[in-house]
Design a protein around this nucleic acid. Structure first.
Length: 956
RNA sequence: GGGCGCUUAACUCAGCGGUAGAGUGCCAUCCUCACACGGUGGAAGUCGUAGGUUCAAAUCCUACAGCGCCCACCA
């Protein structure tokens, strides 16, 4: 196959093609392994070897299901990228890897979406009726619900599409009902009339978590209530004067001397002219305001509690739209805000309003639509959370579940300790309908199936509860319901607990906490297949009821100005647009490279542009490789197919614990020269670091290491150094050309595998090209991830290479200083008193000549440091022989500056080395290092000084 | 009212106890047969401020300032 790749990397077509290929070929599908099957044979296409006990380790990851209404944003993309990296990395290491995708029915969001659609047709949901409306939502879902997952496919997410779920699927819905019924039977679900957060726009109750507080400038109004039968007033303060219409008491603190004499008396509620009692209750804080507080049990959670304590009537003033109802008397029909204005006017007119102060108040807004939430008295279903929370607290405290970064652990625990009962009913139509049936007699029957008749009175006409469940109720169950619960399945034995959850901080409470509570409760007593558990490295974990072993919380992606992205601000960066401009791989790389744990990411296009250049660099290195492979093949010094055959054995992932680990090195690589030994050592080093970084979710570190290795070591040095070997000048060089070619290919191939989890597309493309379109595996994603062999670290090669590089860079420096023209080659002189170094430099003379633009190298026996155009290091002096006059002033300036810095460092080192405390307390390594450095510096200083002297003499 | 995070080169960010780093941008130079999305060389930071701990602090502690986030039923 002719390797005629375009000169510049064009990601668009390539990425779309592979994304489609991965899905079509079902490369990441994982059928349920049977007990016999999951041993020796590979399951996920890769066909990895088994561990010595015959089992493959398992890695399971649940995709946080996006809302069906969702559109891909940067947060998704970061999340996806990190998950895909970790998943691909595990798969390539031979794990039986399941990544489970799906979407969430997203109750309120979806219902709103369809309601909006209806509105454009001039209809309302009630015009259609419940059934027709729900059918309409399903229709919407069929049309548009797949969009978000399609977008994820484009990112290359290596999920198992055969297991895709939707939270309203039949199976999952049955599981939801089962959970509800069981919790009810256990007394953990109750129904009651309480104050809940009510969204007047969505016309439903919402949970505490769905309320977002916002500080606004408001007013604190002081109203006086005349005391009945006394010629005085009691003054109360409120930020919501309209609720005074529903006051049923005024509370004072029992110990408050100011009001002792009024306890037990009544006040006359202004405007309503109703007598209400003055009660004593802890609700009233003597320190605050006047110490007296109005009590409105139907419109404030605290007042509600106080009302219960004192058996006060609850006067509900508003309807579901937060408009005043008939209980508000003359104010009925007004919105709460209009009512507020009117009440204030009237109070003012009648002389009851005595104070008005600026006051900052935190108002609660609906998470979905931003409408100010109304605390509203209504009958709802709740989960008694404490028993569930206790176990969910325990498993995080005792490390059965670990949270990374660790500071989120405390945040989680704090929240768990202050948790309130969870309101799970929603007055919506779209969602899992509550499995409770109401009878005229008042009986409520909770059951898995619709009951035929009332269990109490025998009535057969029963009505199902009209409420649906909070969306998070069903998503909290996913770790086990997606694996077939309530059935006991093989899937559960293999894949539960899932291994990891990667998600955003925002849903730590919404979702993560709920999954832990439900998982621990409903999977209590569950045991993962012990052999698989051990093979996967979780033998030390005792509790298999947890939904996952680890949670990784990723950062928030902000815009370039560190602002949180939001539609209202209009600063949303569309990942698809970024992808189009820079490519998916470059975008993925950017997110990985910027994802240092614990800090938010301010998305930077310039960084992405830099990584696009990186992709291009990889591309062109590949072109270089193919060019040489083709050339060598034609020259007959190299047999591509034969060589690749040799690599195949080492390509499949082997597992930790198996005896042969052929994938460890760079298969087929034969180190002959210094640069060969050096690059092999570097490869193993970077491989070690990268694997460690993935293991601990230090994505940025892994990405940066790979980047530096590929560009810095491999392209800038290795390829440049080996070029002459690839182009043999005579027969004698032919053989080594073959080896060089093989080294280039094998190192490149191994690097592609190292890179693949971050940049899946370009690596897949080049990898297939390496195999002329006939690779031994269907995808590089199924090949082995490189593992480091520390035996291959070659300190000598790295040290020697550093010296050669140092010399080359020194000469390049001098050339620039002397203003030698780029094309002009210059002779150099080299001096070293160390025979080994001298011989090293002699051996690498041709490399030095080529890479530093040198015409000839002469080794001399005396120091060169006093010459103009010379540079000295601790190991050698080098002199560029070039007659063009150097810029004396500039050179003096440079040397002076250098000298100053040296003096500074020498002074501080000398001071430290003279400090007994330092010598006594600092580690020997540090002291020794400083001594050596000081010695070198002192030698160098002399050289620089004499150069300066020389300049002074020859100057002008 | 509680809790948390950030402040390092012009910009975006790493580093988090032992000689200040990267990408982009900038300057100079080179279109050398992989790559100008490139090569080579260079300039650029008293690591927010003030104290403290330490032989040693960008790195640990305290306070302060600025920015930001989360949680919270006190009128």
């Amino acid at each position: 196959m002719p390797h005629d790749l375009p000169k510049a990397y064009e990601p668009g077509a390539i990425e779309a093609r592979w994304a489609e290929y991965w899905v079509r070929e079902k490369l990441f599908s994982v059928p349920t392994p049977s007990k016999a099957e999951d041993s020796a044979q590979g399951i996920a296409g890769g066909g990895a070897r088994a561990t010595s006990d015959g089992r493959r380790p398992v890695f399971t990851l649940l995709l946080p299901p996006p809302n069906v209404t969702g559109r891909l944003h940067m947060g998704h993309m970061l999340n996806q990228t990190q998950m895909d990296i970790i998943v691909r990395w595990h798969r390539m290491r031979g794990f039986l890897t399941l990544w489970l995708p799906g979407t969430d029915h997203a109750g309120i969001a979806t219902q709103m979406m369809v309601e909006r659609q209806l509105a454009s047709e001039g209809k309302k949901r009630r015009d259609l009726g419940r059934e027709a409306f729900i059918e309409r939502v399903w229709e919407w879902k069929r049309h548009y619900g797949g969009a978000i997952l399609d977008q994820m496919k484009r990112l290359g997410a290596s999920v198992d599409w055969d297991r895709e779920y939707f939270t309203m699927d039949d199976g999952l819905s049955r599981a939801v009902i089962e959970v509800f019924v069981r919790l009810y039977e256990e007394g953990l679900i109750y129904r009651g009339k309480y104050i809940v957060n009510w969204c007047p726009r969505c016309e439903t109750a919402i949970s505490d978590l769905e309320v977002k507080h916002e500080e606004v400038q408001g007013k604190l109004f002081e109203i006086r209530y005349p005391v009945v039968g006394a010629d005085e007033f009691i003054v109360v303060a409120t930020t919501r004067p309209e609720t005074m219409l529903g006051d049923t008491a005024v509370a004072v603190n029992e110990k408050d001397e100011r009001y002792k004499h009024l306890q037990g008396k009544n006040v006359l509620l202004p405007l309503m002219n109703r007598e209400i009692p003055i009660i004593t209750d802890e609700l009233a804080n003597p320190e605050f305001g006047t110490g007296a507080v109005k009590v409105t049990p139907a419109h404030d959670p605290n007042d509600f509690q106080a009302g219960l304590r004192h058996n006060l009537p609850q006067i509900d003033l508003m309807d579901e739209h937060a408009h005043m109802n008939q209980n508000a008397g003359p104010y009925a029909g007004l919105s709460r805000y209009a009512a507020r204005e009117r009440v204030l006017e009237d109070l003012r007119a009648q002389g009851f309003l005595v104070g008005e102060k600026d006051y900052t108040i935190a108002i609660g807004k609906c998470d979905r639509c931003g409408t100010v939430v109304e605390p509203r008295l209504s009958t709802q279903w709740f989960i008694k959370i404490k028993p569930l929370a206790d176990r969910a607290t325990e498993v995080v405290e005792n490390g059965e579940i670990t949270i990374v970064p660790e500071n989120y652990k405390q945040i989680y625990l704090n929240w768990m300790h202050n948790i309130h009962d969870w309101c799970i009913s929603r007055q919506l139509w779209w969602g899992h309908r509550i499995p409770a049936w109401h009878c005229k007699c008042g009986e409520i029957i909770v059951a898995r199936e619709a009951p035929a008749k009332c269990s109490k009175c025998g009535e057969s006409e029963l009505k199902q509860d009209t409420d649906v469940l909070d969306t998070w109720f069903s998503s909290g169950l996913l770790p086990f319901t997606t694996l077939g619960w309530p059935e006991k399945t093989r899937d559960q034995e293999v894949f539960y607990p899932t291994t990891l959850l990667i998600t955003a901080y925002e849903i730590l409470f919404f979702w993560v906490a709920r999954m832990i509570m439900f998982g621990c409760h409903f999977m209590k007593g569950h045991q993962q297949d012990p052999a698989l558990k051990q093979a996967s490295g979780w033998a030390d974990k005792k509790d298999d009821s947890v939904p996952f072993r680890q949670v990784y919380i990723h950062a928030l992606v902000r815009d370039a100005d560190r602002q949180k992205m939001s539609k209202t601000k209009g600063n949303v960066i569309d990942p698809l647009e970024i992808i189009q401009r820079f490519g998916t791989d470059a975008t993925r790389f950017t997110l990985a490279a910027m994802a240092a744990p614990g800090t938010d990411i301010a998305f930077s296009e310039s960084r992405t542009d830099g990584y696009r250049a990186f992709a291009n660099k990889i591309w062109n290195a590949a072109r270089f490789m193919f060019m040489n492979v083709d050339r060598a093949e034609q020259a007959g010094v190299w047999k591509q197919q034969e060589f690749l055959k040799g690599l195949e054995a080492g390509l499949r992932p082997a597992l930790a614990g198996s005896e042969t680990r052929p994938h460890m090195g760079v298969p087929g690589f034969q180190p002959l020269t210094l640069e060969d030994h050096w690059i092999l050592s570097r490869f193993h080093r970077v491989t070690k670091d990268v694997n460690e970084a993935w293991q601990t979710y230090r994505f940025h570190e892994a990405a940066n290491r790979i980047y530096d290795f590929f560009w810095g070591d491999f392209c800038d040095w290795y390829i440049e150094l080996m070029k002459p070997r690839l182009a043999p000048q005579n027969d004698a060089e032919q053989a080594s050309a073959g080896v060089a070619c093989g080294n280039l290919v094998s190192l490149f191939e191994a690097s592609l595998r190292l890179l693949h989890p971050v940049m899946p597309f370009i690596t897949e493309e080049i990898w297939h090209a390496v195999y002329d379109g006939h690779p031994p595996l269907k995808s590089i994603a199924l090949a082995a991830y490189p593992q480091a062999d520390e035996q291959q670290f070659d300190l000598a090669a790295e040290t020697n290479m550093a010296i050669v590089q140092d010399l080359i860079v020194s000469v390049r420096n001098l050339r620039a200083e002397l203003k030698v023209e780029q094309k002009q080659k210059v002779p150099i002189q080299v001096y070293s008193q160390d025979a080994e170094i001298k011989s090293l430099l002699e051996q690498n003379q041709s490399a030095i000549q080529r890479l530093a633009g040198v015409e000839s190298v002469t080794f001399v026996e005396t120091s060169l440091s006093q010459l103009a155009g010379a540079r000295s290091t601790a190991r050698f002096d080098v002199h560029v022989v070039y007659e063009k006059k150097i810029d004396v002033a500039a050179e003096r300036q440079r040397l002076t500056k250098e000298l100053e810095q040296m003096e500074k460092e020498i002074a501080s080192s000398t001071r430290q080395l003279g400090n007994e405390q330092f010598l006594a307390k600092a580690p020997a390594k540090v002291v020794e290092g400083m001594r050596q450095r000081l010695a070198e510096l002192e030698v160098l200083r002399e050289k620089v000084r004499s150069s300066l002297d020389q300049l002074g003499r020859s100057g002008k």
